[in-house]
Amino acid sequence: MTYRVRIENADGEVVTIEISADELREKGLTLEELLPPNARIVEVEEVEP
């Protein structure tokens, strides 16, 4: 499974990243732990691999 994640950074700019569930598991991280300081998740969407 892959996630498309929209993130708002500290400057108010919204960027989109895609990350797979396998990648998260391998790194032992959650989506929140990948965020840079002062950023927030705006939207998470599951996409087909």
Rank of each mutant, 00 (worst) to 15 (best):
K27M: 09
V15G: 04
P36H: 04
R25H: 10
V5K: 00
P49W: 14
R6C: 07
V42C: 06
I41Y: 03
E26W: 12
P37W: 07
P37Q: 08
A10R: 08
P36Q: 04
P37F: 10
E45A: 06
N38D: 12
N9C: 13
V42H: 03
Y3V: 03
E43G: 11
K27Q: 07
Y3F: 12
L29N: 04
L31N: 00
L34C: 07
G28T: 03
A21Y: 09
V47Q: 05
T30L: 05
I19L: 04
T2V: 15
R25G: 05
P49H: 13
M1N: 06
N9G: 09
E23Y: 15
P37E: 10
A21P: 04
V14Y: 13
A10C: 11
G12D: 02
T16M: 10
L35P: 01
T2Q: 08
I41V: 09
R6W: 14
E43T: 12
E48N: 14
E13S: 15
R4I: 09
R40N: 07
A21Q: 09
L34V: 10
E43K: 10
E43A: 13
R25I: 11
V5Q: 00
E45T: 14
V5T: 01
G12N: 04
G12F: 03
P37M: 08
R6T: 15
E8A: 09
A21I: 09
I19A: 01
L29V: 11
E8C: 12
E32I: 11
E48H: 15
V42G: 01
E33N: 08
E33A: 11
L31G: 00
R40T: 08
E32L: 12
L34K: 03
P37N: 06
T2D: 04
E23F: 15
Y3K: 02
E8R: 09
P49M: 13
E48P: 14
V47F: 12
E45D: 06
N38M: 07
V5W: 02
L34Q: 02
E32C: 09
T2Y: 15
L34P: 00
E45R: 08
R6V: 13
E46Y: 14
E48L: 15
E8Y: 13
L29C: 11
L29H: 04
P49Y: 14
L35T: 03
V47I: 14
N9P: 02
R25T: 08
R4E: 01
T2A: 09
K27C: 07
E13W: 09
E43Y: 14
Y3A: 00
T16I: 14
I17N: 00
L24T: 01
P49G: 13
R25E: 08
